[in-house]
Design a protein around this nucleic acid. Structure first.
Lengths: 346, 346
DNA sequence: CATAAAAATGTGCTCGAACACATATTTTTT
DNA sequence: AAAAAATATGTGTTCGAGCACATTTTTATG
């Protein structure tokens, strides 16, 4: 009923040779109208799907995919990505797909550019990159485009017609999710939106989250709340927080737009005994630890591991099995509290 | 550097024929100690991984997997499972894995048994089943075991040494998650735990959720809350709810242990204008609709689609690529509110 | 030491798609 | 109508693992 037909079967049914069938299937021409019709008749009746296994066995081509990733040494945020890529490496190793990770220093555009050069020199079939630096990314994408190297991106969205795909999250909506949770816990009061170590590279990131967060309160017309934005640097967190708390004794909630919620939790517990609601991002160890202590109320999971995995696996599936690469993959915005956190930590 | 070695390569390096290498790799014996050592030396140096493509091309065996699923006609809860299975069917079609869905009436043990007979008659290589009926499941599993048919389960956990794997959720913990959300919204008050249409087949299910839910409040020693269990049938929801509400005017929260939150939401909106917090399960259309209206506050996503997909895909991966089948796969307990729901609906 | 038996080793075919190349058929040209 | 050119069609090989079977080498036995 659901038999798998082969080219040989089709050839036999149409009364021609497998070579001719192959030419029809691949539009290679050099086929007489008579033969074409006979073969098409057969193809219309049966449901032929080429055996992907055989096809891939024949092609000895080794596909090469490079991943450009910030070195987790500089920020543990990127650690899960490495795991995701390593899963992909394992999975596709048996299929002649070579996946290589190249690290760069997320604080240095120079490092970003230099690592890109190294990748270009390798001329892989495709690249998955973390486009932290907007301007530099655009330059580099042009280069890849000219060399016919396919480019996927993840984590940060960059608009460019040369980019084949983006895997990430809707940051605006994730800000809204955070706001809805905040609104659930707090009936009213002052809320601070804190950006830590805002540098060019993820300013857009944080702003989108803030925009979403604010939009929620704006829409609901919740006049019992007042929102204040606060930009902190790693070096001055505690002093700035202290003075902010002195000036704003009504502060009851904090939304941290980066993965550094643990820094705020730690500082706040030093400064005051007041119970302040904290909502932040990412399941890095220190954040989870404060979640378990009850000092962080919710974390939003950005699922970098899966982002990275999907970034390369869609490429590999494309090369191996000619699957379409979706233009955009938006991962769900997972809400994490102390009760369900363990299931998301891999 | 990361070259893929073939059996032929190994044979050449060890100075033997590929037949001998093959015998060593598969422990088929008939190899002299000298040859064995030479080959092992080579194997220790290089990192040989068989080409799965070639291996699967050779084997003409068609694997057959049957899925035993409650007919979504009787309960839309099961609809996502069908989609999950269909994804798997598409994915594994090219690999000579035949996956068939067999439906049964979830209200009828007879139907369950009859459909199982039909599957047994087909003697597939493996079965994924929804073990709704505990006693009948145990009987049937024995039968499969004798026939050497591998059995995986999902959604409901049944203890049996003959079951290879279970895909599902930790229901106790999901009850706790619901409780933590309820506690977040409500400072105090009376909470009802509602079981709808409790019949034997998922009594355990609901009880586990209730146990988890209660354990959370017990642990926290929250004496400002009082919990009441309420069992309803489809036919008497509105009348029973009305009288319950009259007797308990302080009711402020409801935890529904099944996917039928929409029925409670609908009835409550008829009965009273009071704002009662509702937390339930599953992203079926009607539930999401009430979520969007603000009448349901949270839904816990049981991700049946993925449960079903993983149930068969682990089997297929096992047959095709000799991957291990994990004894238990517990999916994360996704917290859904109106802001992030859209990302989970496929 | 010859011969049989046992053990070890090597050879060759298969799976299905893809493609190069050889052969057959038709069309064009002189 | 024969030769040349163009087009159509068929054949055979490759990819790597797996396994049946053929061949060689070693060991046992009279």
């Amino acid at each position: 009923m659901d038999k798998k037909y082969t080219i040989k079967d089709i050839a036999q049914m149409a009364g021609v040779s497998k070579g001719t069938v192959d030419r029809v299937l691949h539009n290679r021409g050099k086929v007489s109208p008579a033969a074409l019709e006979k073969i098409n008749e057969v193809l219309n009746v049966i449901d032929y799907e080429p055996n992907l296994i055989a096809r891939n066995l024949k092609s000895t081509k080794v596909y090469r995919i490079c991943v450009l990733l910030p070195d987790p040494v500089f920020d543990p945020y990127w650690l899960p990505c490495v795991n995701g890529i390593q899963d992909a490496i394992k999975e596709f190793k048996a299929y002649n797909v070579n996946i290589e990770i190249h690290y760069f220093n997320p604080e240095s555009t120079k490092s970003f550019l230099k690592t890109n050069e190294a990748i270009v020199a390798q001329s892989p079939d495709a690249v998955l990159l973390t486009p932290l630096f907007h301007k530099e990314t655009l330059e580099i994408i042009k280069q890849y485009d000219e060399l016919g190297i396919m480019v996927n991106t993840f984590n940060n969205q960059v608009e460019s017609s040369s980019i084949k795909s983006f895997v990430g999250q809707d940051l605006y909506k994730s800000g809204r999710v955070a706001a809805s949770l905040m609104n659930l816990i707090l009936p009213k009061g002052q809320i601070a939106i804190i950006h830590i170590d805002e540098s060019l590279k993820n300013a857009v990131h944080m702003q989108e989250k803030e925009r979403g967060f604010r939009s929620y309160f704006d829409e609901k017309n919740l006049s019992d709340f007042s929102l204040t934005t606060l930009k902190l640097k790693y070096s001055n967190i505690e002093t700035k927080l202290t003075s902010f708390l002195n000036e704003n004794p009504d502060l009851s909630g904090v939304f941290i737009t980066t993965s550094k919620a643990y820094q705020i939790a730690s500082s706040l517990s030093n400064i005051t005994d007041k119970k302040i609601v904290l909502i932040g991002y990412d399941l890095i160890d220190k954040n989870v630890s404060y979640l378990n202590q009850g000092l962080v109320h919710f974390l939003i999971h950005q699922n970098q591991k899966r982002q990275a995995y999907l970034g390369v696996s869609t490429l590999a599936d494309h090369f191996l099995f000619r699957k379409d690469i979706p233009e955009t993959i938006l991962l769900p915005i997972d809400i994490i509290n102390v009760e369900n956190a363990s299931f998301y930590i891999s």
